[in-house]
Design a protein around this nucleic acid. Structure first.
Lengths: 234, 234
DNA sequence: CATCCAAAACTAACATGCTACATGGTAGAT
DNA sequence: ATCTACCATGTAGCATGTTAGTTTTGGATG
């Protein structure tokens, strides 16, 4: 059987790759928080027209990573403590519900994917690579949601956590937030899941999530690195 | 304080009104489930160009009310039991979390808004007006979410329940699903909130939500009204 | 030097043109 | 009668032009 005649899935649209590029740039910190994003400039930079860029920015606005101000311009989001707290509470609710379902109905896959993410994170932590650690972290929490098996929750989650992920990178790089403690918490959560202890798992999710908000609170009070608001990096 | 100097919000864009029009048409059943939606045709019908229509359809896709098939066309969503069940589970999770928070932190507003929605629903039920009843129902559940006070959850909820609301209208009109029982359940939930009994409230939310899925399951098995898939109503 | 105003530059919203792809019907071959 | 290739038509993705609102800037005036 030739592998050349496999099912062909339609080539990804320009808009999709644009979304991915810009999202990655924001999460990686290449586009600073509050940075102005001109459709025209981004289009020129990527060598495409304004249409897919416009569509991409609209999609990213839904994810909370971009703010579009009518007739004025688009900007990378700027988090405030209240918003971060709310997003965090929201994702806690989704993760707790999902982890409970996953422990009950999808235990094997849950453990497998969590463990895989953990090794990746451990590797990144050893090398002090904050960006890779963030990716592992995303993978870890995604595997919880995915193992929950609810597609509506999965897509909603994807459209919600963007800002938190961006912040995580910033917290880890700008100040060097403690990777080791974070790593420990993930391993503890993995163990609770292995033991099928849903109550303990929920508790750990709460604790773990609270730490991110704490770190952000500290960052806000200590430094003012977040109001850099670089006018145009793009 | 003059009300003339209130905050001015920018005039609604064409895209926004287009979103609202199409959403209303779907929820009201004017655009049947599975109906084909041509950008060009909708644009002609509304007397505008394809751009805002295109943007609107993209937004409605995020809400789950429209499915866009690349190069083929856009269609009003067609629900399957699994998807409906998942959306329902999702919204239950959000409503239960919100109602618990609202009872604890925002009791007065919660009761006020729920009660207002209830009178509206009772009125509609008396007149057997399914569409108005659905609107009251949306208002009721929205007031739960809003009183929870979490903006992230609020916007996520809005982008999630569209398909359920559309189904509710269809279930009430096509078959005449029992308005009275639904009304009773809402009143019971109102009472539980008044008594600040969060556990009972959560239980009632679960029961109430399950009934919608049950009704849909019955509708699916009894009639095949859902595969009408009218080719072009637009 | 500070202030005000107008003009220029910039922005996204919206309109329209073009192209690749999907689909349905039909004519021709078997 | 059936299958096939082709063509006519419809579709959205993308490019580009136009418009209207916003911001910045440059200079004149106090």
């Amino acid at each position: 059987m030739s592998s050349s005649l496999k099912r062909i899935d339609p080539p990804t649209s320009l808009m999709e790759v644009t979304v991915d590029r810009i999202r990655d740039a924001i999460i990686a910190g290449e586009l600073p928080l509050g940075c102005k994003l001109s459709e025209q400039r981004l289009a020129d930079m990527l060598g495409i027209s304004r249409s897919p860029v416009r569509d991409a920015l609209a999609a990213l606005q839904v994810e909370g990573l971009v703010t579009i101000s009518p007739k004025r311009g688009s900007f990378v989001f700027t988090p405030d403590l209240k918003a971060v707290d709310e997003i965090n509470e929201h994702r806690c609710i989704l993760e707790k519900a999902s982890i409970r379902k996953a422990i009950a109905n999808n235990h094997a896959a849950l453990l497998k994917n969590m463990a895989a993410a953990c090794t990746r994170m451990a590797e990144a932590a050893r090398r002090e690579d904050a960006l890779q650690y963030t990716r592992g972290d995303m993978e870890f929490h995604n595997s919880i949601i995915l193992s929950g098996g609810n597609h509506s929750i999965t897509s909603s989650y994807k459209r919600t956590i963007g800002p938190l992920m961006a912040l995580r990178t910033h917290l880890f790089t700008i100040m060097n937030e403690n990777l080791a403690r974070s790593m420990k918490e993930h391993l503890a959560l993995l163990e609770a899941c292995r033991a099928k202890d849903a109550d303990e798992a929920e508790r750990l999710v709460d604790v773990h999530a609270a730490h991110l908000v704490d770190a952000y609170r500290v960052a806000l009070s200590e430094t003012s690195l977040f109001d850099g608001l670089s006018t145009v990096t793009a």
